[in-house]
Computed example of a mutant assay.
Amino acid sequence: MTTAEPRPFPAGEPARLDPDPLFAELRANEPLARVQLPYGEPAWLATRYEDVKVVLGDNRFSRAAAIGRDEPRVRPHLPPPGSILSMDPPEHSRLRRLVMKAFTMRRIEEMRPGVQKIADELVDGMLAKGSPGELVVDFALPLPVTVICELLGVPFADRGDFRYWSDAFLSTTRFGLDEVADCAVKMREYMAGLIAQRRDKPEDDLLSALVSARDEDDRLSEDELLSLAQAILIAGHETTASQIPNFVYALLTHPDQLAKVRDDPELIPRAVEELMRFIQLGISGGIARYAVEDVELGGVTVRSGEPVLAAIGSANLDESVYSDPGTLDVLRQETSHVGFGHGPHHCLGAPLARMELQVALGTLLRRLPGMRLAEGEAGIDWKSGLSTRGPERMLLAWDA
């Protein structure tokens, strides 16, 4: 039975990385629930694994249909117009193909030694400063920022600016609407300047390749070029920068699982997949898809024109898919998850993120023996007012 009145969602600020207790109740009793997010129109919320995959992967649910609608969202601002996240195939496929070559498994593995070098240099810096060290500023943030800067062709020296702009884009309550709008303008002007530089002097980077696709092959409009470059820059570092301390926290607070990975580093790729499943990174149901026809889902009929949110964090804890899903188990047999999404909008950078997370965990465990929380929970400041979860500061200690 579905409630007639939409329930407020999310119910409140998340507690550390604990899963929202509402999800288990909804999966059991109301798998497709009516919800009201802080902004936008009411929506359906899909919480079961199979329903979430349908919403994310079935062409009866559209992102393009959201254009001009008051989308349900946790942020006061609407998604930027012209974003790849607001497109359906074939337009979405056309843009995606332009950057896919940079994220193939072969290309990512060729990058691994360079990423390992960056990680080792960052840990060298932490060791030089001595224990305890600050994980986020000294390691978790600069690692993916350096990688995406080199890949895209963005000056690393400007990281402070685009990190600030990224936080504004992801803001729920931390930034006001005027601040968000100002940051959006500044980031667009910044990317436009870089694009102009690449037109004058192309380099061996992804931004130059995108400029070439715009100017020589006419496969991109100017707005698409700007929006795509911004999306790659934000998405290329934000998720990984959040997940590195999330993964470390999860392992340090599950010492039995930490011991297994320490004893057998070959488990690290498997541990990354389990941690992606286990940790609910976003605080909402992501970006809404709109039904383009009536669809039977989760025991109810979603009418054409109604928005549906896919709760990835809930899907990854579905009891019908995973045994004891609330337990972190790096030896888990069920290795599939939707942590990187599903369907046309499946995370393009998933291979890069996986590799970076593997390198990050492996390097920290190898180079920081006895790694532990320096001051317990008191040494961690958790994000607030943003749509992603994780520590903004985490003090780590290790054995000399």
Score class of each variant (00 low, 15 high):
Arg94Trp: 07
Lys383Ser: 13
Lys101Trp: 12
Leu228Phe: 10
Val123Trp: 11
Ala209Val: 11
Tyr249Ala: 05
Ser242Phe: 08
Gly285Phe: 08
Val136Ala: 08
Glu110Pro: 00
Ala231His: 13
Ala288Trp: 09
Tyr249Met: 04
Asp200Thr: 08
Ile118Ser: 03
Lys383Tyr: 06
Val321Lys: 12
Arg188Lys: 08
Gly339Glu: 07
Trp398Gln: 11
Arg75Ile: 04
Gln358Thr: 13
Lys101Ile: 02
Glu41Cys: 03
Ser93Gly: 09
Val338Ile: 11
Glu5Lys: 00
Gly57Thr: 12
Ser62Met: 09
Glu25Lys: 10
Met111Asp: 00
Met126Val: 11
Gly343Tyr: 04
Arg354Ser: 11
Ala196Ser: 15
Thr173Ile: 05
Met111Pro: 01
Pro42Ser: 02
Leu357Ala: 09
Leu98Met: 03
Met1Tyr: 06
Val321Asp: 13
Leu151Glu: 06
Thr47Asn: 12
Pro391Lys: 07
Arg27Val: 05
Gly362Ser: 15
Arg96Cys: 06
Leu170Trp: 00
Gln243Glu: 13
Met111Phe: 13
Val248Leu: 04
Glu50Asp: 15
Ala213Gln: 02
Pro80Trp: 00
Ala400Pro: 06
Arg277His: 11
Val180Ala: 13
Met187Val: 09
Ala196Gly: 15
Arg289Ile: 04
Ile283Gly: 13
Ala291Asn: 09
Arg219Thr: 00
Leu85Gln: 06
Ile380Ala: 03
Gly285Trp: 04
Leu386Lys: 01
Pro344Met: 07
Leu95Glu: 06
Pro90Thr: 06
Leu365Met: 09
Leu297Thr: 12
Leu228Gln: 10
Ser166Cys: 08
Lys101Tyr: 07
